[in-house]
Simulated scan of single mutants.
Amino acid sequence: MGEAAYKRILLKMSGEVLEGTQGFGIDPSVVKRLAKEIVDVHKLGVEIGIVIGGGNIFRGVSGSKQGLDRVTGDYMGMLATLINCLSLQDAIEKEGVPTRVMSAIEVKEVAEPFIKRRAVRHLEKGRIVIFGAGTGNPFFTTDTAAALRAIEINAQVLLKATKVDGVYTADPVKVKGAELLKEVDYMTVLKHGLKVMDSTAISLSMDNSLDIIVFNIKKEGNLLRVVKGEKIGTKVIKGGGND
């Protein structure tokens, strides 16, 4: 299978990835495929942390636009992420790899509380760790949670799994001729509002020199290719990118 370019990674997936073509909820066939790809990476000896969004079930921001209290909506979104976490945990464990869900809010019947030392110990023992409920605080996205957890567990890279091939100079759907960037720096992302992750997540990554790779998870085998160091998608780094 080749060698991995990283020893420890943090994989960030949006909740929408799990919905497949049905447009809402969880598509079991998609979750099964993702689980197999994650396990293929695990077989290379890579320690894997995962953060999943909850947008396929509920988004706090969308709820607030319809009159729901923003804080209430964000907590509802955190619970939605836990549903996704449990679904992926089940699928990965059916592939034979022990997996732990760690939550930023207390739900002890279904998940462990997030404790950094315990999370790192799970990774060292070969368990996959899925971090749920975002940061546990309203007004922070799961992108920010992914950057935070990556830094806390000392991940070498944050892999942002999306439905597009990487970061473009503009929205390729709206702007004809928009170019895919192979490499870009944090400040360019912030300055031009490029859609990588939210500004808080980018700033946190920049301040801690955490590299980000944005790639298309819908293309089968891409996750393994990225972990092996193949140059696909867009790499967000500190300095020297495109302006």
Rank of each mutant, 00 (worst) to 15 (best):
Glu16Gly: 11
Glu16Arg: 13
Glu16Val: 09
Glu19Lys: 04
Phe24Leu: 09
Gly25Ile: 00
Ile26Lys: 01
Ile26Gln: 00
Asp27Glu: 14
Asp27Gln: 07
Arg33Cys: 01
Ala35Ser: 14
Ile38Asn: 09
Lys43Trp: 08
Lys43His: 11
Leu44Trp: 12
Val46Lys: 13
Ile48Leu: 12
Gly49Ile: 08
Gly53Ile: 02
Gly54Arg: 01
Gly55Glu: 02
Ile57Asn: 00
Ile57Lys: 01
Arg59Ser: 04
Val61Tyr: 08
Val61Arg: 13
Lys65Pro: 03
Gln66Arg: 15
Gly67Lys: 12
Gly67Pro: 10
Leu68Asn: 07
Asp69Cys: 05
Arg70Ser: 04
Thr72Val: 13
Thr72Pro: 00
Asp74Gln: 06
Asp74Pro: 01
Leu79Phe: 05
Ala80Trp: 02
Thr81Phe: 04
Asn84Cys: 01
Leu86Met: 11
Ser87Asp: 03
Leu88Cys: 09
Gln89Asp: 01
Asp90Ala: 11
Asp90Arg: 13
Asp90Val: 06
Ala91Val: 12
Ile92Val: 15
Glu93Met: 15
Lys94Gln: 15
Glu95Asp: 06
Val97Asp: 04
Val101Thr: 08
Ser103Pro: 04
Ile105Leu: 12
Glu106Lys: 13
Val107Asn: 03
Val110Pro: 02
Val110Thr: 07
Ala111Arg: 03
Phe114Gln: 10
Lys116Gln: 15
Lys116Tyr: 10
Arg117Lys: 13
Arg121Ser: 13
Leu123Lys: 08
Glu124Gly: 00
Gly126Tyr: 03
Arg127Leu: 10
Val129Pro: 01
Val129Trp: 01
Val129Tyr: 00
Gly132Ser: 15
Ala133Gln: 13
Gly134Val: 07
Gly134Glu: 11
Gly134Leu: 10
Thr135Phe: 14
Gly136Pro: 11
Ala146Glu: 13
Leu148Arg: 11
Ala150Lys: 07
Glu152Phe: 10
Ile153Tyr: 03
Asn154Val: 00
Gln156Ser: 14
Val157Ile: 15
Lys163Arg: 15
Ala170Trp: 09
Val175Asp: 14
Gly177Lys: 05
Glu179Lys: 15
Leu180Pro: 07
Leu181His: 02
Leu181Met: 09
Thr188Met: 02
Val189Ala: 06
Lys191Ser: 14
Lys191Ala: 14
His192Leu: 14
Lys195Tyr: 04
Met197Asn: 10
Asp198Ile: 02
Ser199Asn: 06
Ser205Arg: 06
Asn208Arg: 15
Leu210Pro: 01
Ile212Cys: 00
Asn216Leu: 05
Ile217Asn: 02
Gly221Glu: 09
Gly221Tyr: 05
Gly221Arg: 04
Leu223Met: 08
Leu224Ile: 14
Leu224His: 07
Leu224Gln: 11
Arg225Glu: 12
Arg225Met: 07
Lys228Cys: 08
Lys228Asp: 08
Lys235Ser: 10
Gly239Ala: 09
Gly241Met: 10
Gly241Trp: 11
Gly241Val: 08
Asn242Ser: 14
Asp243Phe: 14
Asp243Met: 10
